[in-house]
């Protein structure tokens, strides 16, 4: 059974706004904003899935008239997608916290090696003499906000617990 959804303009606009906001947040450096962006994008795509199953406010409950019922499959798909987004959100939270513990902020940084190679002249000597530049976060005053040598701190972020 193919249900051709008549596009409700309000829903279409809502989804468009959600996608725009989500992608905008995804473009920022802070992992927390990325996280919120992922959540918003997840909502956007779930809403789109719902819309693919028919207009709103027609619950697929057995006993009602099948013609007035939304397609239940997209709802099942959306439920699965929600579960997955839930798992990924928690993982991003842990990763952001881990980054905060290690380097004092949660910003996604540049690829240092790539910058180095991109910046070097077409001269093989430069390749030989270039040292490994350390990541440029040493001037960050907050980088030692939380000392991170404790094994439990590591366990906190990655769910990892090593035993001797």
């Amino acid at each position: 059974m193919i249900i051709i959804p008549t596009i409700n303009l309000t829903m279409a606009a809502t989804i468009a706004v959600l996608y725009a906001v989500g992608f905008y947040l995804l473009l920022s450096r802070s992992l927390m904003r990325v996280l919120i962006g992922v959540v918003v994008l997840g909502h956007a795509s779930n809403l789109l899935l719902q819309l693919a199953g028919g207009p709103p406010a027609r619950p697929p409950i057995i006993g009602t008239d099948p013609a007035a019922m939304a397609d239940p499959l997209p709802q099942a798909l959306a439920l699965t997608a929600i579960v997955i987004t839930f798992a990924l959100t928690t993982f991003l939270l842990a990763l952001g916290y881990r980054s905060f513990v290690l380097v004092g902020h949660d910003e996604v940084q540049d690829d240092v090696e790539d910058r180095r190679i991109g910046g070097q002249k077409a001269d093989p000597v430069a390749l030989e003499s270039a040292d490994d530049d350390p990541p440029d976060d040493s001037d960050d005053p907050s980088s030692d906000r939380i000392a991170s040598t404790d094994d439990d701190v590591e366990a906190a972020a990655t769910g990892e617990r090593e035993r001797p």
């Binding site: 990763l95 290690l102 996604v108 940084q109 990541p135 590591e154 990655t158 990892e160």
Partner: peptide, 13 residues
């Protein structure tokens, strides 16, 4: 990203 160091957290992100 398990047992991460600062470099690996960056790459993992």
């Amino acid at each position: 990203s398990r047992r991460t160091t600062a470099t690996r957290v960056r790459a993992g992100m």
